[in-house]
Simulated assay, not measured.
Amino acid sequence: MMYSKQESSVNETLLREHYMKADKVMLAIMSLLFTISFAIAPLYNSWVEAMFIGGGTFGTALLIRHFAPGALVTRLFIGTAFMIMTSLHIQQAHGMLEFHFSVFVLIALLLYYRDWAPVLAAAATIATHHLSFFYLQSGGVNVWVLPSTELGISVIFLHAAYVVIESAVIVWMSIDLKKEFLASIELSTTTRAIVKEDKIDLSI
């Protein structure tokens, strides 16, 4: 029993270390997304959106990660923040369809966490954005999700279908990869326990 508790503690420590490493990778990607928002800004003079929405999202992510490195709340926010940045780029480009591709790219990159939670957070965020902004844009509000609402809500549902399929696969892969990660940790821990101080203890 003592060994089991010790093993569990080692697993949690190494998994948290991986999450902290992944946080840094995701923040680096987010800094790139923030930079891209300024590259897009000249298209329709969206400097204010780039500064406040992009900067606010990136700054909040940095703050949360500082106070909760490797924590679930950080992973959830980064998944959400990825989609906020994507939504910003879509808005800045007045709904240009090519900017919707980043939804699929960024959700795939979240696989590095080996955790399904940020993937679902991202999928829920972008689904809420697309549906709400489509109805706002259709009502004449100065927001953009498509180049024109004449394309119809069927385009939104098509995008949603692809997001659901990709997210389902990524969730399954993340669960499987986490199991493999924990199994490798357990194997390493068991090996070290068997071969300890130049002695072999097969009772373990």
Results as ranks from 00 to 15, higher is better:
R114T: 07
T57M: 01
P118F: 01
T125Y: 00
L88W: 06
T57Y: 03
H130G: 07
G59V: 02
A81E: 03
V73H: 02
G70S: 05
P42E: 08
M83A: 08
A123P: 01
F82C: 03
H129K: 10
S102Y: 11
A68F: 10
I126S: 02
H94L: 08
A108I: 10
F38H: 15
L97S: 12
A117P: 00
G54S: 05
L120Q: 00
M83R: 06
N45S: 14
F38V: 11
L110I: 07
D115P: 08
Q91F: 11
A93D: 13
P42M: 05
F77P: 05
F104Q: 06
V105E: 08
G70E: 04
H89I: 09
L120H: 00
A122P: 06
A41N: 10
E98Y: 13
L72C: 00
S102W: 13
F52M: 11
H66D: 10
V105L: 12
M51V: 15
I64S: 04
G79I: 01
A93R: 12
A123L: 03
V103T: 13
I53W: 09
V119C: 01
F52W: 15
L110D: 08
T80D: 08
T86F: 08
A68N: 08
A121F: 05
A39T: 14
V48N: 12
I84V: 15
R65Q: 13
L72K: 06
I64V: 10
T80P: 01
I90F: 15
